[in-house]
C-alpha cells in the first residue's frame, strides 16, 4: 500500500567534471551518445519510466555539474534523493580519488536518515578507453570499504552495462524508499493526535 503512494525515484549523479555524467544519462534515457564536449550548467534532469519487479516506476535522474563552483548549487538538489550514483573515469585517477569527498559531501548535504545504509552505486565510466588507470579490483575494494556499494563498469559511448547499472540503481532506490516509508509508518504521532481529539470530544460530551 505504502509503495504505491510514491513511485517517483529521485536519483542523483555525482562525480568530477568530464567523467561522463551527462553522457551516461543521455545514453540511458535517449540511447544516444554525442561526441560534443560540453560542460553542464548547474543541474539538469531527465525522467524515464521502467518496470522493476512488475511495478512501473518513474525514475528522475538528476545530472549535476562537476565544476567545483557549481557545487554550492548542486546541494539544493541533493535533498530527497533515493539513490546517489557516483561516477568516475577509469582513465583518470584523480576522479577516483575525489569519490570520497563527493560521497561525504552528499551525505552531509542530503542528510539522509541512515547515512551508513543510504544506497550508493559506483560507476566506472569510459571503459572503452585505454589506458586504464584504475583497475576493477581497486574500485571494488573501495566499494567494499563503503558498505558493499554495487559497482559497474560502463561505457556511455558504447552503451556498455548502462542498462544494467541503471536497473540496479532503480532497485536500490526502491528498496531505500520502501524502508523509509516503513519508517514513516512506525511513527505513531498522527494516530495519537486523532485519539486525543476523540478523548477531548468525550470530555465535552461529559460536560454537557
Amino acid at each position: 500500500m505504502a509503495s504505491r503512494k510514491k513511485t517517483l525515484l529521485k536519483v542523483i549523479i555525482l562525480g568530477d567534471s568530464s567523467v561522463g555524467k551527462t553522457s551516461l544519462m543521455n545514453q540511458y534515457v535517449n540511447r544516444k551518445f554525442s561526441n560534443q564536449y560540453k560542460a553542464t550548467i548547474g543541474a539538469d534532469f531527465l525522467t524515464k519510466e521502467l518496470t522493476v519487479d512488475d511495478r512501473t516506476v518513474t525514475m528522475q535522474i538528476w545530472d549535476t555539474a562537476g565544476q567545483e563552483r557549481f557545487q554550492s548549487l548542486g546541494v539544493a538538489f541533493y535533498r530527497g534523493a533515493d539513490c546517489c550514483v557516483l561516477v568516475f573515469d577509469v582513465t583518470a585517477p584523480n576522479t577516483f580519488k575525489s569519490l570520497d569527498s563527493w560521497r561525504d559531501e552528499f551525505l552531509i548535504q542530503a542528510s539522509p536518515r541512515e547515512p551508513e545504509n543510504f544506497p550508493f552505486v559506483l560507476l566506472g565510466n569510459k571503459v572503452d578507453l585505454e589506458p586504464r588507470a584504475i583497475s576493477a579490483k581497486r574500485a571494488q575494494q573501495w566499494c567494499q570499504s563503503k558498505n558493499n556499494i554495487p559497482y559497474f563498469e560502463t561505457s556511455a559511448k558504447e552503451g556498455l552495462n548502462v542498462e544494467q547499472a541503471f536497473l540496479a540503481i532503480a532497485k536500490n532506490a526502491l528498496a531505500q524508499q520502501n524502508s523509509t516509508v516503513d519508517l514513516y509508518n512506525e511513527f505513531p504521532d498522527q494516530i495519537k493526535l486523532t485519539n486525543t481529539q476523540k478523548t477531548s470530544n468525550n470530555g465535552d460530551s461529559c460536560a454537557c
Partner: peptide, 23 residues
C-alpha cells in the same frame, strides 16, 4: 560554463537563496 561561476559569481555569494533563483 567553467569560468562563469568563478569569475562572475552569484549575486549573493551563492550560498543562500532558493534553488530556483540559483539556477
Amino acid at each position: 560554463k567553467v569560468f562563469g561561476p568563478t569569475i562572475v559569481g552569484y549575486s549573493s555569494g551563492g550560498y543562500s537563496g532558493d534553488p530556483d533563483k540559483l539556477v
